[in-house]
Design a protein around this nucleic acid. Structure first.
Lengths: 240, 240
DNA sequence: GTCAATCTGTCTGCTGGCGCACATACGGCC
DNA sequence: GGCCGTATGTGCGCCAGCAGACAGATTGAC
């Protein structure tokens, strides 16, 4: 973690707020732990809060009738969980699960909506982030259609890595398989390939990235598209 | 077509506007033809207008570096093309192509934004539609991951059908393959299967649906999820 | 009516990922 | 230090969809 003291500005959207807005909004936020596996909201169930992750990562998953699942998007300190609160739907047909433990700031739905209708900088940030989230979803669809498991594994790794401030990730192959919507054995093979190529080391749920550029070269264009679009929509300069 | 005279209310979002708002907005709209194959906007290029299809269908496609493509979502008279104009990004990394010829109303970007910031019924409709579009994208990702070409073909057919007021679709297998991001031969086989099952007849670019419930039974859950979510977010009662 | 372009059907490998069944290896706990 | 649960590696047959080549069929233009 870059800072030990928790602060809302560890989330990039909150960090981008002008001082006047921050002064109004920050006191309304509640700092909460995000334990691994915690379900923030369930398909079709109304959510009460919107979450601004700081050190945690959250996966948006769709779980099918037969129990199989697929990740739709991943959210970390660059974004928010719960866009449907201000988009007007209140619920979505997906599930949000903490994929990497940490913390987040949460904001109650009604307070968020009041702020949203002020049509100030916060609204602008929320909508822009939502657009970047759409790009991520779209690219996930494309990637699922056209790219190999090896490429998708690298893309997933990079997306997760970008949302942490470390080059290590705690995650079993079983869980990665759930996210990607593939078999655990498939992940074993992909991870083995990438490890043999010297890009990562994998040890019982601990992935350490050795050669990040190597990973970027090995993945498909989807990673770059998503990252570039996020940077374009929400340039992050004023980090804490 | 249910009505011969073109009218903005043939688009479901415009139809849902209260009279006062309609009076203000409708005069700003321009009725335009949407010829087959017309590109409304290209990846990364700023769009000038937002489109409200009435009798046309538009596909949102992502085109990869190697030229392969995949459909991300499909938009007809239930929605709009160009959400990034009010979401703030101005562009998206995808392409919008007319998949079924017809007409649409278009609205200039600046005028749209003025209306958006009034935070009235139009804003509410636009945001809710955007959320339903996100659901469609997410479900496309899931479907691409888990379901067979047969199922996806049926899903695609039903989604397109819902956006027309006819049980016939003009579309070659080659084009469908582009949309789904699969080989043309794959579509031939899927279409053959569905035809042999007596659900459609296919003749040189003309698909006629015979047994709609049969199609619904043959497709995956993805179709129902998308449709249900659209109905929930934007119940369409006051049709023209 | 003829011809050419376009659209559709089919065949032959081939490969990536699935499903299932095991064989390990690590690592914390008593 | 041994044990057990959890995590990982690997083998096999199988199948959906790919790649490419080609044969028929329909349509529209002349």
């Amino acid at each position: 973690m870059p800072t030990l003291d928790p602060h809302p500005r560890q989330n990039h959207l909150l960090a981008a707020l002008p001082a006047a807005d921050a002064e109004r909004i920050f006191p309304q936020l509640e700092y909460v732990p995000m334990p691994l596996g915690h379900v923030l909201y369930e398909s079709g169930i109304q959510m009460r809060h919107i979450y601004f992750p700081t050190t945690s990562i959250v996966s948006l998953l769709y779980v099918m009738e037969d129990g199989a699942s697929a990740e739709i998007a991943v959210v970390g300190n660059e974004g928010i969980v719960g866009v449907s609160l201000f988009m007007g739907g209140e619920t979505t047909p997906s599930r949000a699960v903490v994929q990497s433990a940490g913390h987040a700031y949460r904001w109650s739905g009604p307070a968020l909506k009041d702020e949203f209708y002020l049509a100030g900088p916060m609204q602008r940030l929320l909508l822009r982030y939502t657009q970047s989230l759409m790009t991520q979803m779209a690219q996930t669809a494309v990637c699922n259609r056209h790219h190999t498991l090896d490429q998708q594994f690298c893309r997933w790794l990079l997306l997760s890595l970008d949302r942490l401030s470390s080059n290590e990730l705690v995650m079993t192959q079983e869980l990665i398989a759930n996210m990607l919507g593939v078999r655990r054995e498939g992940v074993t093979e992909a991870a083995g390939n990438v490890q043999r190529a010297g890009l990562i080391t994998y040890q019982r749920g601990h992935i350490t990235v050795i050669d990040r550029p190597g990973l970027e070269a090995r993945t498909c264009e989807c990673y770059a598209v998503v990252k570039k679009e996020l940077d374009r929509l929400l340039p992050y300069s004023n980090a804490l």
